[in-house]
Design a protein around this nucleic acid. Structure first.
Lengths: 341, 341
DNA sequence: GTGAAAGCGCTAACAT
DNA sequence: ATGTTAGCGCTTTCAC
């Protein structure tokens, strides 16, 4: 009794075979609470659905209800492990909500694509985890009237943002360094146009001031959130004299590069230089040395993003996911050289 | 003249304002070659579309044409860097084809979801990069009559498969070891139920035989494709006496774990043990020591998968993407200890 | 060179 | 307790 026949089975087919009206089938499927129906009839409908192996057509439903049951998530790059965690969280939340998550790369050259996704109704709302979207593309997205929420950063023009406590992450790292006895503490900061980089830098400065070691401008070096840029930045940093004894790297990808560069330069970690990276990913434990990190709630931010999308429009709002921002101490940090002798 | 008005702009609105029939607008949009139309009229239609900021409704189009313009890709886990590369390739190919790619995790517990994606018409075809899908779920997917292509592995019941030359990858690694003078060559093989693991193991055995060092069963240890499993497998392997001097790890995630475990055991890489992993990912260069790998055409497999989906149904077919399977030599391999003294 | 008409498969307000 | 009806917005065959 397989039903691998031609031509899709439609709701009308089910209705005919179950000898009820199509609208009844529809209401049974959608669990319409206002539907009063004999248990027996409902059972007959359900049985017919199974028998015919009926699956509602998504396009028809979507057309009728003006809802696609899909949310979008735009990221800069699938190969950056940070975003994998965000995607995972967002996907889980969407799944629990009965929706699909459409994750995609925000190719810089084709912003119309994302406007189109919204305007065509393919997705009901969009999570923006990609930076550097052209301002007019963002405006066009907003013009569709659909909900847009930025994740991990603020984006000009977008009211709703899901953020982690980036300032606090820097503070945690600085306090760890200070606790170990470091004084010459450096920061490999992210790109100037990055909102997260700015917040982490602020946190760094503030924490340094509080600790009584006002940040030395020489010890703040810019880097992109990439491995290569992190390596280059560390090389530059190590030309400073006297050398720093500790460095907070604003991003784990950059930190991986920094570790490589340190090795090249025969700078021993943590003996000569302690390193803390912001963002904990599984891999950090398998680097050499295992990297001390400040864990950020990446998955939780993805979840919160989807929640904001499905929730009521609500007023302008910034949600800071505070939960588990904490130090994961591994082997890339130790007291400074002087102290140890 | 912004059009951020209520109620979506429809094709009918455009037709009315451009003073043509809706069907003409439709045919202009879709570039119907059989449409004969005055350049002037076409221009007026196009202008109106721009002016009204019209975007076709995806659901309506989908309902009418029975095509969703979306392909699905099922992977086991977003945080595994292998799949990031596959997704990227598939997404690029889909984008070039004007389609969307819906990548999702194949949660073991909800196979109906994926059947549903196909049966409901949300996706036109599905790429399966996830292993361990229940056989009946696969059958149900096939029952929808839509195209399904497996990527990176064969799946029972699915005719079309996009594969890399896994056997050759193992052979390349073994030849590299042999060229360095190794004889006691081990293999951390993937899970028994994994098709890729099987092919890599075959390649390993065959290459060893060819080299005149028939594989020692003791030196073949099973591992999952995860970091922790790789670490455990290496620990087990190093209890063998005499110890192997080289090991081919079937997967890069497992190799990362193996490297960690080697450090724990004070097994120096490459001095005491040479390591080659299958799969090259950017990170391999930043491990310690930088990991020698056999590059597999992951992105290209993703692309080929989408191509197979959009292409004609075609006969049962297995596409082996041969292109750039090659050794990337870094610092985790060296001649065996004996030779170096 | 352009228009008319039918219908894809579903839902929801309104009958009965 | 169930049926009727009227589209959602688009494409496409056929007619003029």
């Amino acid at each position: 009794m397989t039903t691998t026949k031609r031509s899709r089975v439609t709701l009308a087919d089910v209705a005919r075979q179950a000898r009820v009206d199509p609208s009844v089938v529809s209401r049974v499927i959608n669990g319409d609470s206002r539907l009063v129906i004999k248990a027996e009839t409902r059972e007959r409908v359900l049985a017919t659905i199974r028998e015919l192996n009926y699956h509602p057509n998504a396009a028809a439903r979507s057309l009728r209800t003006a809802q696609s049951g899909t949310f979008g998530l735009l990221i800069p790059d699938f190969t950056n492990p940070i975003y994998a965690e965000i995607i995972k969280g967002a996907e889980q939340e969407a799944t629990e909500h009965g929706s699909l998550l459409l994750a995609g790369t925000a190719f810089d050259d084709r912003p119309e694509r994302y406007v189109e996704m919204l305007a065509s109704g393919r997705v009901e709302g969009l999570l923006l985890a990609a930076n550097r979207l052209p301002t007019d593309a963002v405006q066009a997205m907003l013009g569709t009237g659909r909900s847009i929420v930025s994740v991990n950063q603020r984006i000009r023009g977008i009211e709703h943002a899901i953020l982690a406590d980036d300032e606090r992450a820097s503070k945690i790292a600085v306090q760890h360094f200070v606790g170990l006895g470091h004084e010459r503490i450096a920061h490999l900061r992210g790109p100037a146009d990055s909102d997260t980089a700015r917040r982490r830098l602020n946190g760094f400065r503030r924490a340094m001031r509080t600790a009584g070691f006002p940040a030395d401008q020489d010890l703040i070096v810019g880097t992109d959130y990439t491995t290569d840029a992190g390596a280059a930045a560390l090389r530059e940093l190590m030309t400073r004299r006297p050398r720093p004894t500790a460095v907070l790297v604003a991003n784990v990808a950059a930190a991986v590069g920094a570790l490589s560069a340190a090795r090249e330069l025969d700078v021993r970690v943590p003996d000569d230089l302690s390193v803390v990276a912001i963002h904990d990913i599984p891999l950090a434990a398998n680097l050499w040395p295992p990297l001390t990190t400040v864990r950020m709630p990446l998955g939780e931010m993805g979840r919160a993003g989807v929640r904001a999308l499905v929730g009521d429009p609500g007023p302008a709002e910034v949600v800071v996911v505070r939960d588990p921002t904490e130090l994961i101490e591994r082997e890339s940090t130790a007291p400074p050289p002087r102290r140890r002798r």
